[in-house]
Amino acid sequence: MNGQLQPPIHAGWAWQYQWLNLSVADMIVVALMVIVFALALVLPFPREDNK
């Protein structure tokens, strides 16, 4: 890698499979999205009695 231009963006370790490149930050965001979506589905929504 000597002499090769390096990107200024340092996303850290990344899982690589063919063209797919997912950093730890990417995977944390996807996991958070799944968790928030699941919580939105299961948590009871506060409702008024007079509806």
């Binding site: 979506f37 919580l39 939105a40 589905l41 948590l43 929504f45 409702r47 509806k51």
Partner: peptide, 9 residues
Amino acid sequence: AYVDSYVYL
């Protein structure tokens, strides 16, 4: 009534 869910937010 079915809009009473966090999914709709």
